[in-house]
Design a protein around this nucleic acid. Structure first.
Length: 154
DNA sequence: GCCAACGTTGGC
DNA sequence: GCCAACGTTGGC
């Protein structure tokens, strides 16, 4: 079982939208970065815990949790010429991009802010702080525990 | 909305 | 296969 941090912009797809999706479940798609793709394709498994992160806002931070509920599969948007995620170089026999389904678990009463994360010595090695742009990141068990505990503390 | 960081593209 | 140019990301 792995722990992940998935980044999203609340204007694009927020944790509230995930929570209000049918069965609290939605496809996490549109990943068009090879490092993130490799994580999705090779490492993400059903049952993994996901920290949902809202970025590109003033109070960026982890806003809740979700659970992975499918294995990786070819992202249908890459074959859809009308989609912003269309990739003409991808083919059905050799899909380039992958996605998964996740199910909403919890929305924190208050987000665990990036500002707070930066202050924690035990979180100083988080990929979030080293490679801010990566949208799918591996989180260690102690890191995720630290953030989850903070979310319950208020 | 600025701009630094970084990933991708494409000419050579 | 190098690397400069370019585009995108995301915190501020």
């Amino acid at each position: 079982m792995n722990y992940w941090l998935f980044k999203t912009e609340p204007d694009e797809f927020s944790i509230q939208q995930l929570a209000s999706s049918p069965n609290h479940t939605a496809r996490w798609d549109g990943i068009r970065n090879y490092q993130a793709r490799n994580f999705l394709r090779d490492r993400v498994q059903a049952g993994d815990l996901v920290l949902i992160y809202h970025g590109k806002i003033k109070q960026a931070g982890v806003v809740g949790t979700a659970q992975v509920v499918s294995p990786a599969y070819a992202d249908p948007a890459q074959f859809d010429a009308g989609s912003p995620y269309y990739d003409p170089k991808s083919s059905g026999s050799a899909p380039r991009w992958f996605c998964i389904d996740i199910q909403w678990q919890d929305t924190f009463v208050e987000p665990v802010l990036l500002d707070w994360i930066k202050e924690q010595h035990e979180l100083s090695n988080m990929m979030l702080l080293k490679q801010g742009r990566l949208s799918v990141q591996l989180v260690t068990e102690p890191e995720s525990r630290c953030i989850l505990q903070k979310s319950q503390r208020r």
